[in-house]
Simulated assay, not measured.
Amino acid sequence: MNKKIAGLVLASALAGASGATFAETFTLHSPELEGGKFGNANLLSEPYGFGCKGGNISPSFTWSGVPAGTKSFVLTIYDRNAPTGVGWMHWVVANIPATAKGLPGGIDAQGKNLPAGALQPRTDFGVPGYGGPCPPEGSTHDFEITLTAVKVDALPMVTAEATPAFVGFFTKANSLGEAKLTIKQGR
C-alpha cells in the first residue's frame, strides 16, 4: 500500500472515530456503602434472631449508563456465602420503573418510599422487604448487589408472593444488562 492510500485510510478511520458515540457503562452506586461495608443502620435487626442488632434500614442506590431498551429494573441483594448450600436472598425489588434513577434509603416492607409500580417479592426470610446482612460471628461474606435492566415493564407472573428463584428466572430471561456491587461484610 502506498503512503498516499495509507494516509487516506488513516484519516478516514480517525474521522469516523471522532464522530463515534460510546455507550456509557451501566453502573450502580450507594453512598452508604462507599466504605465497602454495610453500616450498622443497614445490618439485620435483633427481632430476626440471628444475633445482629442493626437498624435493618435499606441503603439508597443510584445508577447510570442504562442499556437502551430498558423498560424496568430488578434489584437484588444476595449473600452467596450463607451457610445454606444455596446462598441467601436478602432483598428483591422488581418492576422498578425505567424512569427511576435510583432507590431511596429506608424502603420498608410495606413499600414506603418505593417507586410507584415497583414491588418487593419475598426474600429468603420468607417475607417481602429488606433484610439486612448478618453473617455468622467470625466469618466474612460476599454480598452481591445486582441491578438488572430488563426489557419488560413488569416481570410476568411476579407478585409479592413470588420466591426469589421465580423472580430470578424471569429477570434473567428478560435481561438487557447488569450493574453490580460486591460488599465484603464480616462480624
Rank of each mutant, 00 (worst) to 15 (best):
K37C: 00
S72G: 10
L44D: 09
G85V: 11
D79Y: 02
P59S: 08
V74A: 03
S64N: 15
G69M: 09
A41R: 10
N42K: 00
Y48M: 10
E34F: 01
K53N: 15
G54V: 08
K37S: 04
N95W: 13
A82I: 09
A41E: 12
S30E: 06
I77E: 05
G87D: 05
A98P: 13
E46Q: 14
N40I: 07
W91M: 09
S60N: 10
V74M: 01
S60F: 08
N81L: 05
H29P: 00
L28N: 02
A82K: 06
A94S: 14
G54S: 08
A82S: 14
T70S: 13
N40K: 13
L28F: 03
L75A: 03
F61P: 00
S58W: 00
A41M: 08
H90V: 04
P59T: 05
G85A: 12
I77M: 11
P59L: 03
V93M: 13
A41L: 11
G36F: 04
V74E: 01
G49C: 07
G69H: 12
E32Q: 15
D79T: 03
T76C: 00
W91N: 13
S60A: 15
S30M: 07
P59C: 06
L28V: 03
V93P: 05
G87V: 05
H90M: 15
L75P: 05
G35S: 14
W88D: 10
S64W: 06
V86N: 10
N56S: 03
T62S: 15
H90W: 09
G85E: 09
G69D: 12
N40R: 12
E32T: 05
P83M: 00
N81K: 08
N56E: 04
T62N: 15
A94G: 03
A82D: 13
C52S: 14
T84H: 02
G51A: 09
T62D: 15
S64D: 15
P97D: 01
F61W: 01
K37P: 00
D79Q: 02
L43I: 01
A94W: 06
N95V: 12
P31C: 05
T62A: 14
E34N: 10
P97Y: 01
G65N: 11
T84R: 02
P47V: 04
P47I: 06
T70L: 07
G55Y: 07
T84G: 03
E32P: 04
V66R: 07
F26P: 05
G51M: 10
P97C: 01
A82Y: 14
H29G: 00
K37A: 04
T62M: 12
V93Q: 13
S72F: 11
N81F: 06
F50I: 09
S30R: 07
T84W: 04
L33R: 07
G39E: 09
V86L: 04
Y48K: 10
L33D: 01
F26G: 02
K71M: 08
H29R: 09
S45G: 14
K53A: 15
G35A: 14
P83L: 02
A98G: 11
D79M: 01
L75F: 03
I77F: 08
P47N: 07
G87H: 02
E46C: 03
T27C: 08
S72W: 11
L75D: 02
T62E: 15
G51H: 09
S72C: 11
W63V: 05
T76W: 00
L44E: 14
V86G: 05
